Simulated scan of single mutants.
Amino acid sequence: MSATKQVVISGDLNAQTYSATVWDLVTGTTLKTFRNGGVLASKCLSLVSDQFLMAVQKDTAIIHYWALNGKQQQKKIICPAKVNVLTVTPDGHFAIVGIKEQLFIYQLSTGNLLTKLERHFQPITCIKVAGDSSYFISGGEDGYVFVWFTHEILSNTSFSHGSSNDSSLAGKEPKHSWSYHSAQITDIYCAYSRINGKCATCSIDQTCKVNNESALSHFHFFQK
């Protein structure tokens, strides 16, 4: 059995040769490259269960993904509009995509759109998923932070949806919402699970705020 190797995966701003590269963290050598995805967008590169690499082509609605043990591009998902941010649930089942002010959740095994969430009123800038995939958090240019429970969002969803025009995709509500920031959210950290979970949010208003997700309480405040 081969030893576990620590790696770094990066996107190429020029993409003249490769769209993404896997690097050995210790030696800095190139282990693998991925082609035909163009220039990749920032905050739009994710691993899927350590088997696939997903990435968004910059300024497009195209999500590419490649098998980590293969050489050819495997599949594309075409979204309704340009993608702002992409993340994948750690269990490898779903991709959560921020498009303008909306969140779209896709089933990775089929590429189907499962649901669409609408609560932000300015473009979404960050999405982070808990380590156990039980919840995810979104932040936007509006300064709002929303906590979504994955099971509740998908509990009444038909996994046969394939069209983003279906009005039944919309209408789900977040479990919690916070409006402590006065400007765009720039990054989010969330705990592994909802049990005694905490999350931290940063903003261009020069503040970092830590929340207790389970108790819906804001209890720490840091300002530069």
Rank of each mutant, 00 (worst) to 15 (best):
V7F: 09
Q57M: 11
I96P: 00
K71N: 14
F104N: 10
L31S: 04
G38H: 06
R35A: 07
K100H: 12
D50Q: 12
D50S: 15
L86G: 05
I96F: 05
L13P: 13
A81N: 13
Q102P: 01
T21S: 02
V97L: 00
K100E: 07
G92A: 06
T60F: 00
D12I: 05
V7T: 12
V83S: 04
Q107S: 12
L108S: 01
V97S: 03
Y106S: 04
S42F: 15
L45R: 05
K82G: 06
P80C: 06
V85G: 03
L53K: 03
T30A: 13
E101K: 09
Y65R: 13
D91K: 07
S42T: 15
Y18N: 11
Q16R: 12
K58W: 04
M54R: 07
A67H: 14
N36H: 15
Q51I: 07
Q72T: 11
Q57H: 04
V26A: 13
G11N: 06
V56G: 02
T87K: 03
G37W: 04
Q74A: 15
L25H: 09
K71D: 15
V8M: 09
C79K: 14
G98P: 00
S46G: 15
V7W: 05
V22K: 08
V8I: 15
V8P: 01
N84V: 07
Q102I: 06
Q51S: 15
L108T: 02
R35F: 08
L45A: 06
A55T: 05
G28M: 04
Q57R: 11
K71Q: 13
H64M: 04
A20K: 01
V56I: 14
L25W: 08
L103K: 00
G28Y: 00
S42N: 12
D24K: 09
V8N: 06
P90E: 02
I62T: 11
L25R: 10
L47E: 10
I62L: 14
I78R: 10
L103P: 03
K58E: 10
N84A: 09
T27E: 12
N36R: 13
P90L: 03
C79P: 06
R35C: 10
S109M: 09
K100A: 15
H64K: 07
V97C: 07
A61K: 12
K32F: 05
F104Y: 14
N69I: 13
L31Y: 03
G28R: 00
V26W: 09
C44M: 00
F104C: 06
Y106F: 05
V26R: 10
T89W: 07
A61R: 12
L47F: 11
Y106T: 04
L13V: 15
W66K: 00
K32C: 00
S46K: 14
K75H: 11
G98I: 08
S42G: 11
S109V: 13
T33Q: 04
Y18C: 10
D50K: 14
Y65A: 04
L68K: 01
K75P: 02
T30M: 12
G28K: 01
W66Q: 01
T87P: 12
S46V: 10
A15T: 01
V48P: 04
Q6L: 15
F94P: 02
